[in-house]
Nucleic acid binder design. Structure first.
Lengths: 225, 225
DNA sequence: CGCAGAATCTGAACATGTTCAGTTCTGAGA
DNA sequence: TCTCAGAACTGAACATGTTCAGATTCTGCG
């Protein structure tokens, strides 16, 4: 509520008001039921005004992304500070990542449909989402950086944060589809993957494993919309 | 062109004509530039008529799916018949899967956006896509069934085809994002994954590996929109 | 053949995101 | 205080997918 206070130019205030009304509506009504006309009405501006401040409806969701990923980063960083074990830190990162998405699960499909197209500015991998994506990558970079004795070869460790972030996006994709109570299945998927990570890490010392893994990580890390 | 011949009831003929015009347009113009009004005009029917025969635009893409996956199954089956090595068979299956998608790469984003939402009938994992998905699962079931001495524990082999199909969908997702010439990067991703599969298969005999893998496969195999 | 009911078809109307030509307002400098 | 360029805003118009009440055509039966 404070951000729509009377600070900045008139334009900035209007923009903030639209932003706030939109985010509130996305949270309450989801993506589809939040129409641009509704936002305009609740913000007390005309239809055209929303498009003056935000080029498209998707740009408004972008603002939501940013808010969510910022919370992600802060919470995850705080929680990870207690341990230096890589797998444990990753578990915290992923679990927190699912937690911040929680309030939006009911609306997952709507957001997902708008988000997944490579052309959409809403796509987490698109250039316009870069700030939000950067927050997520930072979480995993910290997760890796703060861990000790994980014995991961340097060249692989370097690509890891980006690849782990893609992993988070895939986990979120699974989560969107997951209709089990409390998204229990997604948790199990995460548990299984992490359980595999422990025994698998030492294998990275074998060239027959390390070489393809490095190649895969590089490809995945570079994926961009 | 034969399917719009004068066979069946009048309704069936109109339906076939609409279907044909739509598929042709999807191939030429992609998803977005194929408007329902355009289809109606080219098929010589009214706007409402298309919605009488196909409840929505997405249902028309469903028809395209089916045609593509049928080609996928036929071609893959023919090509796999020469070998019994699991990894080789999988390579053939996945490579063929990418090949049948080839003509649509330019329009990937449009189709993808329409397809990915769990609510969309267009979603490969939705109930309405079941026939198309079944064709794909059949490809991978055959790939596994026709291979010899792969040494995969029975309980895991059972879930494998469904999980491999999800793998194909993810590969297609990566492919959609892949803007490298001829989607070279996707091929490399596939190569890397398959290179990992060879050395990894024997590890399935270790309980610490097998247990989480089985859990993961089960979760992934059951994913439905 | 004639007719009733079902199948098929029609086009206007609606909701929604987006565009844009034009209008109003704001604030810095004279 | 006055001016005016640019910022901010407006609402009509457009494109598109979908819906629906009604018109038209077809089909089988007497």
């Amino acid at each position: 509520m404070f951000s729509s206070e009377s600070t900045g130019t008139k334009g900035e205030r209007t923009r903030a008001r639209i932003r706030e009304v939109a985010l509130q509506s996305f949270r309450e009504r989801g993506y589809d039921d939040t129409t641009v006309r509704l936002i305009a009405e609740e913000a007390g501006v005309s239809l055209g005004s929303t498009n003056y401040h935000f080029p498209s409806k998707n740009h408004l969701v972008q603002e939501l992304y940013l808010e969510v990923t910022r919370g992600f980063r802060e919470t995850a960083a705080r929680r990870m500070s207690g341990t230096t074990d890589l797998v444990t830190r990753l578990r915290i990162a992923y679990t927190t990542g699912l937690e911040v998405l929680e309030p939006y699960h009911a609306f997952g499909p709507g957001f997902l449909a708008a988000a997944v197209s490579p052309r959409s500015p809403l796509n987490p991998l698109s250039g316009e989402s870069e700030p939000a994506l950067a927050e997520a990558v930072a979480v995993f970079r910290e997760a890796v950086a703060g861990s000790a004795r994980h014995g991961i070869p340097g060249d692989i460790a370097e690509e890891l944060p980006e690849a782990l972030t893609v992993g988070y996006l895939l986990l979120a994709l699974f989560w969107t589809y997951d209709r089990s109570e409390g998204q229990r299945r997604t948790r199990r998927l995460l548990d299984g993957a992490l359980a595999l990570l422990g025994p698998a890490l030492p294998l990275l010392r074998l060239p027959a494993i390390r070489r393809p893994v490095r190649e895969l990580l590089a490809l995945v890390a570079e994926v961009r919309a």
